[in-house]
């Protein structure tokens, strides 16, 4: 006998999609650690930007790098695509009606789906992080650098947990955005395209507002991406730059929103996305072949 959450996990873990997305994340981590890190540094260790490349792959600096890149691409690729697909296929397959006529409440259905997706996304992204860290440790040993947390401004184990939590919090609203779009639109394309579009449009919008400066620059602090960037920036070890795979400016943490405020703003965004999702789904007519 399995319970509702196990049933939800069974639906997703038996699909090929999470594994393909996981491989993409691992591929991204490999590019980040080897191409943008070790190989760039090894080409000419005395070059102007070799320090930046060194801080990309060497452990423990790599933890912040992987979480930075992982927050961006984990939101856009892994969580956005997987969430949109898992939600909208229930409509396409007609299985959402199968669930609802069995006495599962609509709110319960959404809650279990969110919980299952959160568990799966966390498991796969942590696995990708682990593989990325393995690459980092390997590259660090090849560079004859010590593998230790005991570096200047290096994190303790609990601090590493906090760093992972910050990155996860930066991913959460994008997952809920994809969940909202695919639930409201009953479309995988809308969920994925909408989440991608939001990330890109927000990045452009923030850049324009920052360029204008003054009040416009202050207005850009409303953007979700600025707060996610602020959270991830709080993970940095030391003050040196690194080669991130995230498509965003390597901003000075002092110019980004405070991470604690950012966490609250992100939670507010999450509440708004959840409220829209539940309101629409609880009132919706579920018809054949929607």
């Amino acid at each position: 006998m399995i319970n509702v959450l196990e049933a939800e996990l069974l639906k997703v873990r038996t699909r090929w999609m999470p594994y393909v997305l996981f491989l993409m994340m691992v591929g991204g981590a490999a590019v980040n650690m080897w191409l943008a890190g070790y190989l760039e540094w090894k080409q000419d260790p005395s070059a102007e930007f070799s320090g930046q490349a060194y801080r990309t792959f060497v452990f423990p600096y790599s933890i912040a790098v992987l979480l930075d890149s992982g927050q961006f691409w984990g939101s856009a690729i892994f969580v956005g695509i997987l969430t949109s697909s898992c939600v909208s296929t229930e409509y396409n397959w007609g299985t959402v009606r199968q669930v609802l006529v069995r006495g599962q409440s609509r709110a319960g259905y959404l809650a279990v789906k969110i919980a299952a997706l959160a568990i799966l996304c966390a498991a796969f992204l942590l696995a990708a992080l682990a593989v990325g860290l393995f690459f980092s440790v390997w590259a660090t040993s090849l560079a004859d650098a010590p593998i230790t947390l005991d570096v200047r401004d290096g994190p303790s184990l609990p601090e590493i947990g906090l760093m992972i939590f910050r990155a996860a919090l930066g991913i959460l609203p994008y997952g809920l955005l994809a969940f909202m779009l695919s639930t409201v639109g009953r479309s995988t394309a809308l969920g994925i395209g909408g989440t991608f579009g939001y990330i890109i449009a927000e990045g452009i919008g923030v850049a324009i507002l920052q360029g204008i400066g003054g009040l416009a620059a202050d207005l850009s602090d409303v953007a979700l991406g600025r707060h996610a960037a602020g959270l991830v920036a709080a993970n940095r070890i030391g003050s040196g730059e690194y080669n991130s795979m995230a498509f965003r400016e390597f901003a000075d943490p002092a110019k980004l929103p405070d991470p604690n405020v950012g966490a609250l703003v992100i939670l507010l965004y999450c509440l708004v996305f959840l409220a829209i999702t539940f309101t629409v789904f609880l009132r919706r007519d579920i018809r054949v072949h929607q």
Partner: peptide, 20 residues
């Protein structure tokens, strides 16, 4: 028009129905 999870077996689909 109701269908099932196509990537799962008939038995697994029933297990999901049972869980719900």
């Amino acid at each position: 028009g109701v269908d099932f999870y196509p990537h799962l077996s008939g038995r697994d689909n029933m297990r999901i129905c049972g869980a719900i």
